[in-house]
Structure formats: structure tokens, C-alpha cells
Nucleic acid binder design. Structure first.
Lengths: 342, 342
DNA sequence: CCAAGTATCCAAAACGTTTTGAATAAAAAG
DNA sequence: CTTTTTATTCAAAACGTTTTGGATACTTGG
């Protein structure tokens, strides 16, 4: 492995000069810099990252906690989010450290990563309404970016989508078609995004003077099987649901199966709107019938989160690093007028 | 941040003693060790990983290349595999570095990570029949574990499932039920696992004296939409398929939609066997009808790959680190006798 | 021609560990 | 009582960078 010393000897200059030449300092002659760069290129020099980390005190690494076990988050979401982060980081020569944790291990793992100087900043996801991680990271002074939001008075950087609007727009679109019994296949009740979506859903109902019925909401991990079960429950009510809002493509698939199993037709007997986080392997526009969705890119969120982390490290104040993305509704065939309720 | 020097001063011993006490060397008095440990605990000492890395020359980190863009691999596979790796690594105090790459950037990214001392070993996945990465890593002498296999004379550590058997067992199960026209929804032709599955599928056909028909195989990214399209193609043949083998749950979902769209019933008019890599959010046993699958855990593979990487670094010879896991067939309702071909 | 600036280079210190080789004291062996 | 062994400790070097604070030589301005 070629190091600074080797280059210095080769070129008959000091280690300092080599270092400063490669790092673009102005106090080195351009001709010298050219010679150094050429030699570095020729000999394939790459700075030893660990030496650099030690002396600068910066790991040049962003950390992301990753659940080792079953998670509340669909696997595909994590992977898309990760890719987005990776995309942004590789543009900036930052590293991405995955911090595996199990059950309630997360803060302990954070502590370890922070104290041992492994990371300069963290990206935290899967946020709860009252998430202890925010307080903790604040207390220890570790820079972090949140994917989502939580209830706290502390200022923090975040990227989130307008989940209230997801619930609202979906419900309004269905109400506009005459639906009055709309089932909400939502995420876990203690997660912020799920709470927000229900808030939007309720606001839409209230605007149209329709009473909220808790029998028409389901809070669970957004999985295929849960979507199926909850939909069947909504259909079994005295006044069954004629429309559904699914929190993700995962439970939408379960809902669709329940619809078909009940012998109903999507877009005719039952309408469905799902939230789509955009996967390569499951596209609402190629389903039969095509699926009406609210859309937001998990990958883009990861990208933005990573960008924010870097800007945070560059000294950007937290107040400038708070974004809520709007979500658009893509109307397709799975939504139709409410059937006559005879 | 408390360091060795602080502990040493606090305890009136040398830095050396503190270091050796904490690292379990036998040449330190047990009473001293106890005092040191207590102080370390009390002051919250954590070794600076970067200093340790610099002096030992070991990054104590395993790397995994992660596609920044659309991938041939379903997002959920990546996440499950990652979790498995994380599980194993956190047990061993190893770090996991994600190495993002785009398009044909992969080897360049490997070079960077290796030369800058960021990783001690790599885990490589998404393997092709002739994969240049194996030769490269061999050449530069970087330890690595392959998830899958490739065609090379070089010895290398790998964990793989018996994909030939996946194809064979699935086909035999369908042939046993009288099916003669079996569509194969396979992965990309240049990927080893897909080649192997086709080999097994062909062997089964050959055993039963049935001619291979290339119109009944599809090679593509294993996505929902492709499963749908290929299944429709198989149904449109003069002699349509009465059974299907899907390479993943992703294209199985597309296949199921095509079956329903054609007005057919799964397990009655058409039989389906899918390969299931085990996700929390899509379970074959909770589908309607339940889905017959070959099963192998992506997570377990990740776990094992990471274990192997560590054993490799501990000096275990490559020959002891080559495993092929058997795959079992789980019979459920999606397979039934071949319908009368009139 | 001198003073002050400017451009260019470098030796040495520092980052926080691990490890080597030796030093000391106490115990055991002769 | 001397020598050898054993247990315990430590000072110093090393890892490969970055950064500080000069040093040198050359320009420029007066």
C-alpha cells in the first residue's frame, strides 16, 4: 500500500508538500502539484482513511440504524431508502455505516457508534410519536436527520412527506365519488405517519359531515396478511366499507386479495387508494385494474436525508433543514363511484 | 470523550496497563484489571475505533456493495440479506459498510474501499455466470464471500442454495400432478441462479421424457409486471401452460394476477409454485389459496455469509467455507392435478 | 539598495491506540 | 545468599495522516 512517505521519497519533496498538494492547498506550486498528482495517480495512492479519521477527528461517515429482526417497516422500504442515501453519499465521498440493532438495543448501539468515533451524523427513521432517540441525540450533541417527525419541542432536522394530506386527499377523492364508508388500513397507532394520516382522513370526513367510525380503521404493521384480514373485517360490518385507503402497496395487495375473494370488482363494487413509496418491482400502473395512489419516493427521501446530514455537518443551521414534501394523488382505475347502497 | 490517557491519569497507572487490562492480556494483575474496568465503566470509556484501526491495520469492517440505482434484485431481498448480515456482525462487534455503486462502477468502488483501508473483507451478491468481481478480488488479495456462485477455476468462499434443485423439485412436483406444459418465470439468463434453476427444470422434464420448449421460459428481472406479462404469454400459446414456476414472490404476484385476469382458478385450472425467500410482509401461507413454495431464507444467507467472512479473516481456509443449502418444497393449495386437456 | 511582502517548501507535533522490549520487585530454586 | 523464574508494570515507538509555525528565496515598492 503506497503512502505519503513513498510519494515524498519518489518526488524528493516533503510529506507535507505531498499532502497539501493533493488536498488542494494554495501554498504549493502548480507545477509541483502536477508532479505530485501524476505520481499519486501512477502509483495508485489512496489516503489511509483511518489515519485521516484519527487526525481530523471526523469519521466522514453517516450512520443508519438497521433493525436486525423483523421490523415495522417493509423490507423494500428500507432498501429503497438506503439506496437513496447511498446515492447522495457517494457523490460526496461520505461512507455509510449500517448500525444493526435488535429490539430495544437502538440507543445503546448509537452510544457505541458515537463514542467510538465511527460516525459524524446519524439518519434516523421509523419514527414514533414520542421517540426517545431524538432527546437522546440532542443530549449527546450528535448531529442527526430524522426521516419523519415526532412530538418534541427540540429543534431538529427532518425530511417528511405530508402524511396528513395523504389521508385527506385520499379520503376526499373517495368522498367525491360518493363513498361514505371508507376503511383505513393504517400503520401502527404510535407511529407519527399513521397518526397524521388518520388526522387527514378525519378532517376530510368532518368537512363532509360524516361521522368517524373507529370500526373502519385498522392499525397494524402494513403487511399483506393484515391488509387482507382488515379488509375482510371492513366487509363484514353491518354497513360494509365501499372504499379503502391502504397505507402501502404491501397491505394493498392483501386488500385486493380480500376484494377478489369476496367476489367483488375493484373500481366497481369497491374502490381502493393506496400509498405508493415507489418500488421497481410492484407498479400500481401495471396492476389490473390500475391502482389509484398517493405517491412519494422513498428513494428520494433517503437521498434528501443524506444531503441534509452533510449540510448539517457543514454548519447549516437546523432551521434550514426541515422539509415536508407534498404528495400528489394519481387517479387510476381502482376508484369508481360508490355503488348504490340499495 | 474520555481516552486511555484519562483513565491512566485517574488510576495512576500507565496507558499500556490500561490498554492491556481492557484487552484481557494475562500480564496484568487481576486487582488492577478490576480497577481499570470499573473506571472505564464509570467514565464511559470507549476506544477510539479509528486509532485502533490505524495501528492494527484492520478496519474491523465488512463491506457490501449496494446498487444505488434500480437493481436486478428485489428491494426486499436486499433488506433481508442486510439484516442477516447485521445480525451476525453485531454479535462479533464488526461494522458493516455499505458501498454504493452505480452501473459499472462496482469494481472501482471496491478498489477505493480496499486501498483506503476501509474494509477487511467483502460480501458480494447478485452473481453472474462470469463475474469479473471474483477475479478482481482474487487478484488484489481481498478476502471475500460470495452469495451465490460463478464459473471460475479460482477457489472462493460462498454460500448458495441448491438452485438446480429448486428447478428440479418444483418441476417434478408439477409433473407428478400430470402437468405437461410448465411455464418457467425465471431470472435474468446471465445470472447463475437462473441458469441453475433452468438446468434443474430441464433435468426433470428430461427424466419424464418431455421435450423442453423455450416458449415456456421467460428470463427477466423478477418483477410483478414481468410475471404478469410472461404468464399471459404462456397462456396465449397454442398449447397453453397449465402450471407455472415463479422465481420469486414478486413475479408470483404478477402471475397470480394473470391467472385471475384470465378467469382461471389457481390450484384448479392452473398450478403455481413460487420460490419464497421469506419476507415478513408477504407470506405464501396466508394467500388465497395458499401458495406452494420452495423456501430459503435470505436473512439466514446473509447471516451465514457474514459469519463466513469473519471466519475467513480468522484464517479459516476457503475450502471450509463453501456451503450449498438444500431447499425444501412446501406443498400448499396452489398446486392441483392437471386439468383434462380435452 | 533595503524593507516588506509573497510564494513555496518543510520539520515536527499531534491524533489515540497497540505493541515491543525492558525494568522492577517478589518468589522460587539452587 | 545468589541465581533464576515469574508477575507486574511502563516508556517509547509505531500506525499514516493533517496541521502548525517557521524557514527560505524571490519580488516588489520605496
Amino acid at each position: 500500500m503506497v503512502k505519503l512517505k513513498d510519494l515524498a521519497r519518489e518526488l524528493n519533496v516533503s510529506i507535507t508538500t505531498v499532502s497539501r498538494a493533493l488536498n488542494g492547498f494554495s501554498d504549493v506550486n502548480e507545477e509541483t502539484r502536477a508532479r505530485v498528482s501524476a505520481a499519486a495517480e501512477r502509483l495508485g495512492y489512496r489516503p489511509n482513511m483511518n489515519a485521516r479519521r484519527l487526525v481530523t477527528g471526523r469519521a466522514h461517515t453517516i450512520g443508519l440504524a438497521n433493525p436486525s429482526e423483523s421490523s415495522l417497516i417493509h423490507e423494500a422500504h428500507i432498501a429503497e431508502f438506503l439506496s437513496g442515501i447511498g446515492e447522495a453519499l457517494s457523490e460526496s465521498e461520505y461512507d455509510l455505516l449500517l448500525i444493526p440493532y435488535k429490539q430495544n438495543d437502538e440507543i445503546e448501539r448509537y452510544k457505541r457508534a458515537i463514542a467510538s468515533n465511527r460516525v459524524d451524523a446519524l439518519i434516523v427513521g421509523s419514527i414514533f410519536l414520542n421517540d426517545p432517540r431524538i432527546d437522546f441525540l440532542h443530549k449527546v450533541g450528535m448531529p442527526f436527520v430524522v426521516h419523519g417527525r415526532t412530538e418534541t419541542a427540540l429543534p431538529y432536522a427532518f425530511i417528511d412527506i405530508d402524511n396528513e394530506s395523504v389521508g385527506y386527499k385520499s379520503a376526499i377523492a373517495l368522498l367525491d365519488k360518493g363513498h361514505r364508508r371508507i376503511g383505513l388500513l393504517n400503520g401502527p397507532a404510535d407511529m407519527t405517519f399513521a397518526r397524521d394520516r388518520e388526522l387527514g382522513y378525519r378532517r376530510a370526513l368532518a368537512e363532509r359531515g360524516i361521522a368517524f367510525d373507529s370500526a373502519l380503521t385498522d392499525n397494524a404493521m402494513m403487511a399483506d396478511a393484515h391488509g387482507f384480514a382488515a379488509t375482510q373485517r371492513f366487509f363484514a360490518l353491518k354497513k360494509p366499507a365501499t372504499a379503502l385507503i391502504a397505507g402501502s402497496m404491501a397491505n394493498a395487495i392483501g386488500a385486493i386479495r380480500a376484494i377478489r375473494t369476496a367476489g367483488l370488482m375493484m373500481g366497481k363494487h369497491v374502490s381502493l387508494i393506496a400509498h405508493d413509496d415507489i418500488f421497481h418491482f410492484l407498479k400500481p400502473e401495471s396492476m389490473v385494474p390500475t391502482l389509484t395512489t398517493t405517491t412519494s419516493s422513498m428513494r428520494a427521501a433517503g437521498h434528501r436525508a443524506a444531503e441534509m446530514a452533510i449540510r448539517l455537518l457543514d454548519g447549516e443551521p437546523v432551521e434550514n433543514l426541515q422539509q415536508v414534501w407534498d404528495v400528489e394523488l394519481n387517479e387510476r382505475e381502482s376508484v369508481g363511484p360508490a355503488p348504490d347502497q340499495g
